[in-house]
Amino acid sequence: MTLTAARAVSVRIDHYSAVHLAAAAARSLGEQCGLPGSLPDQVAVLASELASNIDKHARDGALYIQPLPLGAGVEILAVDRGPGMPELERCLADGYTTVGTLGAGLGAVSRIATDFTIRTQTGTGTLASARLTRLDQTAVARQGASLVCLPADGEERCGDAGAVVDDGTVRTAAVIDGLGHGPAAAEAADSALRCFRAAAERTLPDILGAMHRTLRHTRGAAVALLRLDGEQALYCGIGNIRAVALSHDGVHHRLTGQPGVVGWRMPTPKTHTIPLPEGTTAVLHTDGIDARWTHAPTLFTLRLPPQLLTAAVTHNHRSTRDDATVLALRPHQRHL
Rank of each mutant, 00 (worst) to 15 (best):
G105D: 04
V164Y: 04
L102Y: 11
L304A: 13
L68G: 02
L208W: 10
L147M: 03
T4S: 13
L246W: 13
Y235I: 02
S110Q: 14
E156A: 14
L92Y: 14
H332K: 05
T325Q: 03
V175L: 09
D167Q: 10
I65C: 02
L276C: 08
V262S: 05
H217Y: 07
V261P: 00
G71S: 05
L3N: 03
V170L: 03
R171T: 11
S38Q: 10
Q42H: 12
L106A: 07
Y96L: 00
A108L: 15
L132V: 10
G71T: 08
D167H: 14
H217G: 00
V109R: 01
R12E: 02
A189V: 12
R7M: 02
W293H: 14
V45R: 09
A47V: 09
L70W: 04
L308R: 09
T256R: 05
V11H: 04
G263P: 04
H57Y: 15
A24I: 06
G159K: 03
R202A: 12
C149T: 15
A161R: 08
G37F: 10
A189I: 09
D206L: 06
V148C: 05
D14I: 13
T325I: 08
T218G: 08
P183L: 04
D249Q: 13
C236R: 05
V251K: 01
T320H: 14
Q258M: 12
G30A: 08
G84Q: 01
A324T: 10
L35F: 14
L70S: 07
